[in-house]
Design a protein around this nucleic acid. Structure first.
Lengths: 340, 340
DNA sequence: CTGAAAGCGCTTACAG
DNA sequence: CTGAAAGCGCTTACAG
C-alpha cells in the first residue's frame, strides 16, 4: 500500500522504467542529456501512470473554468453571475474567459486550462474544436455546455431551456390579444435556441390558422443593433405588423428605439414580446413582456453536472431542458387598427 | 549573494525572526502549536519579506483574482469584461468572485486566494479587512482597488476617474441649458466616487450662483429602484425640478420610469443626466445624456499596476484618476416652464 | 549518456 | 510551545 495516495513519485516511475530518478527528472523537465531511446521508454511509462507533481502543501482551491460568449452583454453577465454563485456554494472558484467572435476560445486557452487543472469547463453559447475536447477529456476535465452554438458535439452534456415552448407561449399571447400580423426577429440559425424559438412561433401561428409571411421574418445575431435595424425595416412597411416577437430582450430594446424613432407608441400602436427576461426587461419603458429563461437553474444544473460527471466519467449523453414561462408586463395589448 | 533569485526561503525568515524553520513552516501553513506572540513576530517578518513557495516544475498559468461588487449589474459586468480582456492580453487568467452586500469578500475567499497564489487581486468597489490585506501582502500578492468603497486603505493603490469633474460637467450642462431647479440622486456616502460627484454638482451650482436646495438632494445605493423611488419623490413635488442629475445610469433608468408613470415627458418636461455611460445608456428611450467613465482604461491600468507592483514591492502610494467627459444624447434640452 | 551522491526546501514526528 | 533531527521529493553537479 502506498504511503501517500497522491499518485506515482519519481522513484516509482524510475523503478518501472528501470532508470534512475535523475533520468526521470530530466525527461519530465525536458532537459538534455538523455538518449532518445531512454527518453521514449520513460515517456511511455509516464503515459500509463501520469505523474502529478508533489502535492503542494496547501492544496489549491478547486477551480471551474467558464468560457462565455460576450461576457459584458446582459445575457452573458447574468448567466456568469449565476454560475459564480453556484460554483462558490460548491466550493469552486470560477475562472472566466471571453470567447472570440466565432464562439471559440482564443488560442492558448486550452493550454491554460490544462495547466490550471479545473474540475470542469462550462461553455456558454460556445463551442470547442474536437482536438481540444479530447485534450480536456484525457486529463479528466469535464465539459458541460449551456445553450450550445454550432453543431452540437454528441458526447457533451448540454443544458438549455424549453425554447420551442417559449416561442409558442410568446406568439400565442399575441394571437390571444387579437394580433394577426406578427413580425419576428430570429437569432443565429446555428443555435438550437434560435431555431426552436422560431419553430414555436411558427407552430402557434399554424395552430391559429395564420399563414406565416416570409417578409415579416427577419434574422439577427441577438444584438440591440439588429433589433433596431430590423425593427425599422418591419415598421417602415406600409402593411406593418401590429406586434413583434423579438426573440431576445436586446432585440426588444432595439425595436423600442425603432418605434420611438418612427413615433409609434408601445403598446398602443405596437405590441412587443422579448425573450430571456433579463433585468433590462424590467427597466425598459414600458416594462417588457417577455419569456422567462431560468438562468439560475441552468447555472446550478451546469455546476452539479460537472460534479457528477467527475464521479462517474462514463455518464450517458445528457440533455437537460428547463421550463420557460411568459411574464406579461406592459409592452403588449390588444391591437388598435385590426380591432378584435 | 543568494543562490536563487526566487526570494527568501524558510531558512532566511527563520534567521530573521530568530526561530526555527519548523516554526516558520507552521505559521505559513496555519498550523497549531505556535504561541500567539511568536506567530505575530513571524507574520511581521513575512510582511517585509514575503515568502514565495518553491517553484513547481510544471508552472500553472498565472492568475489574477477579481473581487467585484454586483457582478451581474451593468456596471460590474462591464468593468469585469474590460479586466478580463486586459488580463488575457497580459497572459493572466481571471478568477472572478462576487462580494457580499457589504462589499467585503465572503468568508473563505482570502484563504482560497492564498491557495491560488495569483499575481494580484483587483477589488472593484470592494474593501478588505486589514488582517486580510496583511495576509495577501505577506504572500507577495499585489492589491489594486478600482473605485474604493469604505474608508480607503492608505497603502493600497487605487484607480478611479475624475468624479468631481464629471459631476461638475453634468451639472454645468444642465445649467447651460437654462435649468435652475436641478435635483440630484447621490450614491452611497462611503464611496469616494459618490461624494466627489456630489461635490462637483455643488460646485457647478455655486459658481452659477444657484443655491442648493436640500430637499432636491436624494440619497441612494446606485440602484434602479432608488432612481425610481427618489425620482417619484422628486417629481411628485409641486415645485418639481426641471432636471435631475442621476449620478448613475441605473438611477437614470429609474427616473425614466418615474417620469413615465407620472406622464412626464423626457426631455421636453424633464432633462435627465446619467453617470457611467454604460451600454444601457445608449439603449434607453430616449438615449441618455451621461458622463463617460473610462472603464476600459481603468481596467488596463489596474492590470498593469499589478504587474509593476510585483516587480518593485515598495512602490509609493498611488492614486490614478482617469478623465471623464460628458456625452450629450437625447435626454436633455432647455426647460419648458422656466423658459430662458 | 547514466546514475550515485550531495543538496535544496520544506514538512513532520517527537523529545524536551 | 519549541526546535533538532529525520525524511520526502525532487534537482543538480559530477565522476565514470
Amino acid at each position: 500500500m502506498p504511503s501517500k495516495p497522491r499518485g506515482p513519485r519519481l522513484a516509482d516511475i524510475a523503478k518501472l522504467a528501470n532508470v534512475s530518478e535523475s533520468t526521470v527528472s530530466k525527461v519530465l523537465n525536458g532537459r538534455t542529456g538523455v538518449s532518445a531511446g531512454t527518453r521514449a521508454r520513460v515517456e511511455a511509462y509516464l503515459q500509463d501512470t501520469p505523474h502529478q507533481p508533489r502535492a503542494t502543501k496547501r492544496p489549491t482551491a478547486p477551480l471551474l473554468d467558464v468560457l462565455c460568449y460576450e461576457i459584458d452583454s446582459p445575457f452573458g453577465s447574468e448567466v456568469v453571475a449565476h454560475i459564480e454563485q453556484a460554483a462558490r456554494q460548491d466550493g469552486l472558484g470560477m475562472v472566466l474567459t471571453g470567447s472570440n467572435a466565432d464562439n471559440l476560445p482564443h488560442p492558448g486557452w486550452v493550454g491554460d486550462v490544462l495547466s490550471r487543472q479545473p474540475v470542469g469547463v462550462v461553455l456558454i453559447a460556445c463551442r470547442l474544436l474536437e482536438a481540444d475536447r479530447k485534450m480536456l477529456r484525457s486529463r479528466n476535465i469535464q465539459i458541460v455546455v449551456i445553450d450550445p452554438a454550432g453543431t452540437p458535439a454528441p458526447d457533451i452534456p448540454s443544458i438549455g431551456s424549453a425554447d420551442w415552448n417559449g416561442g409558442y407561449l410568446a406568439t400565442r399571447h399575441l394571437i390571444d390579444l387579437g394580433h394577426r400580423r406578427i413580425g419576428i426577429i430570429t437569432g443565429p440559425p446555428d443555435m438550437m435556441a434560435s431555431t426552436a424559438r422560431f419553430s414555436g412561433f411558427r407552430a402557434a401561428l399554424d395552430r391559429a390558422g395564420i399563414a406565416i409571411e416570409p417578409e415579416l421574418v427577419r434574422p439577427g445575431q441577438f444584438h440591440h443593433a439588429d433589433g433596431l435595424a430590423e425593427g425599422l425595416a418591419l415598421l417602415s412597411r406600409p402593411d406593418r405588423p401590429t406586434a413583434i416577437f423579438a426573440s431576445s430582450d436586446l432585440y426588444a430594446l432595439g425595436v423600442y428605439e425603432a418605434a420611438r424613432t418612427l413615433g409609434i407608441g408601445i403598446p398602443d400602436e405596437l405590441s412587443v414580446v422579448g425573450y430571456d427576461d433579463l433585468r433590462i426587461a424590467q427597466w425598459a419603458g414600458p416594462p417588457l413582456t417577455t419569456v422567462h429563461v431560468p438562468l439560475a437553474g441552468m447555472a446550478q444544473h451546469a455546476v452539479h453536472l460537472i460534479r457528477r460527471l467527475g464521479g462517474e466519467p462514463e455518464l450517458a449523453f445528457t440533455r437537460i431542458d428547463i421550463d420557460t414561462s411568459l411574464v406579461v408586463r406592459s409592452s403588449t395589448t390588444v391591437p388598435t387598427k385590426v380591432s378584435n
